[in-house]
């Protein structure tokens, strides 16, 4: 009798803990989409990826052992076809004013204070100084990309297949398609930049 009562209590506690853990995990997974504005943003990003996938289907697929010519031609063709298919896209197509406000809340929250300054330095260091905030333009291939702090990536809504957040030296937030090497959207002055000490000479 005592044994079954004890077992019942243990089971009860186990289920409660499991339930709480499940709820926490579910909450963690869904925390990025609780904001309906950002959920809408991700839906639009997925629609963009669908367009790219459709375009890629009409092209010979890139295999994992290609030559430089094939890689280059594939990327250029994909970019041109996407640009043609969304020729009407303008700055703000995905970063709408509502999305901008939500993203800025995340960025401002994460990039404040001394830790934030360090993150902003990481983000804008060695990032391209003159990348035009221009939708459908190629991301300058002879310039480095900014490194995006992992902490910030955990807070920003997770983007679908090969879309990524990058920053320019001016602090513009760029939505980049890594496959097409293209600027999908751009948000000028999304973060304030950090003045760097002069560059050390590199040979």
């Amino acid at each position: 009798m005592y044994l079954s009562k004890g077992l019942g209590v243990i089971l009860c506690v186990m289920f409660t803990i499991a339930g709480a853990n499940f709820a926490w995990a579910a909450d963690k997974k869904s925390e990025k989409v609780t904001d309906p504005v950002l959920a809408g943003f991700i839906e639009n990003a997925k629609a963009y990826v669908e367009l790219r996938t459709k375009i890629e289907k009409d092209l010979p697929p890139l295999k994992d052992k290609e030559g430089a010519e094939e890689i280059n031609a594939h990327q250029r063709t994909v970019r041109m076809k996407i640009a043609a298919a969304r020729s009407g896209a303008r700055r703000g197509s995905l970063f709408t004013p509502e999305v901008t406000a939500s993203l800025k809340r995340i960025l401002d929250g994460d990039l404040r204070g001394p830790d934030g300054k360090m993150a902003r330095t990481t983000m804008t260091e060695e990032s391209p100084a003159h990348v035009a905030c221009k939708v459908n333009a190629a991301y300058p291939s002879n310039e480095p990309v900014s490194t995006v702090p992992p902490d910030l990536l955990q807070k920003l809504p997770q983007l679908p297949d090969n879309l990524e957040y990058r920053f320019s030296k001016r602090g513009d937030l760029i939505l980049r398609d890594a496959k097409a090497n293209m600027i999908v959207d751009c948000l000028p002055g999304a973060v304030s930049t950090v003045k760097k000490s002069p560059e050390t000479k590199t040979e």
Binding site: K65, I71, S141, S146, T147, N181
Partner: peptide, 17 residues
């Protein structure tokens, strides 16, 4: 940070795409 992610398809870099 100077690399185009499409290098992953380049045969001599063996990145499996």
């Amino acid at each position: 940070n100077h690399d185009n992610p499409e290098q992953r398809f380049y045969k001599n870099f063996n990145m499996e795409g």
